[in-house]
Write a protein that binds this DNA or RNA. Structure first.
Lengths: 197, 197, 197, 197
DNA sequence: TATGAATGAGTCTTCATTCAT
DNA sequence: GATGAATGAAGACTCATTCAT
């Protein structure tokens, strides 16, 4: 029970993302997901323990892909400010180009129950760690101020990006999200700039 | 139907805040709220059109109180940076001292359905306007940079504060939220600082 | 939740007995019982915690009525052998005249799950106590042998009556159950007769 | 399809007995039985028409073994009272030493559906015939009374033995079943004793 | 106004059975 | 013969809302 691989596993995950994005969290019945994935209702339970497990797995996997992309992009950049720019860019770009996932993560999934949210939280933690690494590097490099605690800065960075994406989606994407990469980076860099001694 | 005043109206709102905070959004049944408010289930429908209306009204009213407090506090401050400091301080202080409401707004209410979230959004808009006013003032004063769009800055400010409070609550409030007022203010001020020409 | 009185409570119990007797245990859906009782499905849950609770309550109540009838009948009889005759007679007569309950208790309910069967078992215990009292009286009176343990005799008495009723029902009641009262009583009396010293 | 021989056929039957006894009737899924028998789920359907057929076959075979043992034992005894003693002894001894089957037949199988119970009934009939033969012999010998119908006596005998074993199992076998052989035999013999003319 | 008993729509999950390999 | 992945039908229970009193 609960095989975590196979093409049907993938098909179900993709179907779930699509159904949730299109119909909303509260209208994403198991039967609807099964139909979208072209499998029987029961088949879902060969790959997932229950609906909760499906949603958490979905999030875990999609979040994992996003984190990987971000990690690789950041590695290309050299300095901490450049890495931060890359992170902002990748954050916006990835969600812009994975709209269904964007809706799922920014809007729909937040309506889920506490246990699912806890699973989500764990997946998000890895992403927060990525942010932390960039900030810490900047502090070591001496380009980011280190008199403010890491976790306070992380909240500014993540909170700002998260709010920017959510607002963009809730306003029906009627402006260009990517245009905010530079301004937000500028705000961060200025905010984080180490005092010149 | 739907009388928007009376002591029972208030009692029901307060009961709803308490029940949601204590039992979670998904366990806040109308009957439980009625019991907490010492009224019959049916009585709730004399004051609210339906559960959705109750939740939106609740949020609207509580948000209104919060906004009023913030507005008054900001008026006391003179310069934009001081007003921003006051806003951050009041944001954290108000939610610290209205814990039930804090949980309702930061954690529980986000699990609600799209229509309720839309109602919530409208209430939040007034708060975002407050932020906008402070930023705009700073721009006029020439102390905040004006080469970055207002709504981008607003997202940084609100996103950061929101994330800070949510993380604090989700971590069981095991550190002092008020300690982050100054660091966050510092980050904002530096980020927003107008270039000295 | 779970009011154990009222006319609807009774109506639901009677409906359940009827539906189980007519459609069999495995075809006695809550919705079918609700329809038979002329109430909404949900109403059943105002009176019973769940389906299990309904079935156990049903059995408890019907068994209680049966036990009361038997107890009163036995009290009229004077000697232990007469009381035993009365018990056999009442056992057969009550089930003959409460056919739906007879099917429920002898045939359908035995297909239920362990928790329900445990509830049933508790109700049956009171009936076994009645049998015990009669046997013990006979032993005290010196008319029943006391060199055989009470619980062995009780098993003979209950086992025989139970088997007699079940076989009668399973054979579509094509013979007269009441005709077995005297022969079975004779068998018991002879079997139990105390040795004349 | 439905080959009624082969070592897998046996393996499946034995596995079913074990699984039902250990996990209970309602938790004896086909897949669990297949696993226990070290065959694939589908293989079961090469040997049995369906689950019902498996359960009925299982019962038929195990009951057949039991009947054979009993028949042989009875033949050793000479008089009807001795044969009755042997039958009681074998009844208790066989079930004591085939505990899994005892649970299956006395407890678990009774939760099954009507069609299975009908199959079970047919298997039991052969056993009841054995009892009948012993009683009839006693009547012919003139040691058992013949003024009471055979089928009434048979119900006493079978009902008593059945109740004795079931009660023993339901009470977790905390007393010695074999100790009841003599007392029950005594009860029967006295009950059945022909009037001395 | 206020009550609270009654309503009934809506969904996740299990598991016996099949059939392509 | 043997496999085991896939199927899909079926039912208990919750809770927002109503309405007779």
């Amino acid at each position: 029970m609960a095989k975590k691989t196979g093409e049907k596993y993938q098909a179900i995950i993709e179907a779930a993302v699509k159904v949730i994005a299109e119909h909303g969290y509260h209208n994403a019945q198991v039967s609807k997901i099964a139909k979208e994935a072209n499998v029987a209702d029961g088949t879902i339970y060969l790959y997932f323990k229950n609906k909760e497990d499906l949603l958490i797995s979905l999030f875990h996997q999609k979040m994992g892909e996003w984190i990987m992309v971000t990690k690789e992009a950041i590695e290309q950049a050299k300095t901490a400010p450049e890495k931060l720019l890359t992170l902002i860019h990748t954050h916006f770009y990835h969600l812009s180009t994975h709209l269904n996932f964007a809706y799922v993560t920014q809007v729909e999934m937040r309506q889920s129950n506490p246990r699912i949210r806890e699973g989500v939280r764990r997946s998000v933690k890895s992403y927060l760690n990525l942010i932390d690494e960039v900030i810490e590097l900047g502090m070591k490099e001496g380009v980011f101020r280190s008199d403010i605690q890491l976790f306070t800065i992380r909240k500014m960075v993540f909170g700002t990006l998260d709010e920017a994406v959510t607002a963009w989606l809730m306003n029906d994407r009627k402006y260009e999200l990517m245009n905010q990469v530079i301004p937000i980076h500028t705000l961060f860099i200025n905010g984080l700039k180490a005092d010149k001694q």
